[in-house]
Amino acid sequence: MAVHLEPVHIEPIGVIHTCFKEKFGIPRQPNLAAKAPGMLEFFPEFARPEAVRGLEQFSHIWLVFVFHKVVKKNGKWSSMVRPPRLGGNKKVGVFASRSPFRPNPIGISCVRLEGIESTPKGPVLHLTGVDILDQTPVLDIKPYLPYSDRLDTARDGFAPAPDNKRCQVSFSDMAATQLQEKEKAIPNLMPIITQVLENDPRPAYFDAHLPNLERDIRTDVPQENRVYGIRLFDFDLKWQASGNKIRVLSLDPV
């Protein structure tokens, strides 16, 4: 039976600024990098103090946002995706995943609300635990309600627990010196970097616990020799990996 639906107009209410300047390196779920900061600024039409009145009583909020940098292959969506949690090789239905490659590129994240700042341009939300690309449009905000949003009897499919394959992160002497200088302007920078890298941002098809003789199938470069880069804040984080050990090489200005 054909159903006629009136067009739905959805307008972003604001934009979120985060430390993640590119998609590579963003944690695959919220709160995996608990210190990762974000700041939500409202667009003028929605920058009304009364619109967030009472929100300060909640410790966490849901953000509904747009995956604005997702490019669909041939302009089409796929009904099957390869979740990183399954190694990037097994497929599941797109609606059984949190993949950004969806019919409608809408995402949700539950993040910590650290505070609400009053500014001449309206309220600004300060957040942590974000897993969202910088400059992402936000569609809506809803308070997190533990009594209904946390369901102790819920089934968790192919992701029954956090991924325990944590990487050990260390810093070179150069990186440690640069880090000390940058922490004067960026609080909690060491735990932010550590939490991002602990979760192993490398492509899902690479298992950090396999022997180091594995080569990158795209470049034929031994994994332990490859230098990775992640754009964070105003610098390029350079690092190398060997098995489940990651060493930060430098924090280079962009």
Rank of each mutant, 00 (worst) to 15 (best):
L189T: 01
A185Y: 12
A161R: 13
D149F: 10
T177S: 08
F171R: 05
G122P: 05
V169H: 00
S148Q: 11
D173A: 02
I141W: 03
A176D: 05
D152G: 09
V196A: 02
P143L: 06
Y147V: 10
G157K: 15
D131A: 08
A159Y: 14
D156Y: 13
N164S: 10
S172C: 02
P143T: 12
F158E: 10
Y144G: 10
R166E: 09
H126I: 15
E181S: 13
L125Y: 10
L151N: 14
F158G: 11
L133P: 03
K184H: 15
K165P: 06
N188R: 00
K142A: 10
Y144L: 02
F171V: 08
R150M: 08
H126W: 14
A154S: 09
L139Q: 13
P160N: 10
K182L: 14
A176I: 02
D134F: 00
V169F: 00
R155M: 07
A161S: 15
K184T: 14
K121V: 06
P137E: 11
F171I: 03
T128E: 12
F171E: 05
L145E: 15
Q168V: 11
S172F: 03
A185S: 06
E183I: 00
L197I: 00
P160E: 07
K184S: 14
E181P: 01
E198W: 04
Q135G: 07
C167W: 01
I186V: 15
L139I: 14
L179S: 01
A161G: 14
Q168P: 03
P137F: 09
I132S: 01
D152Y: 15
Q135N: 12
Q168C: 10
R150V: 04
M174Q: 03
E181V: 07
A175P: 06
Q135P: 04
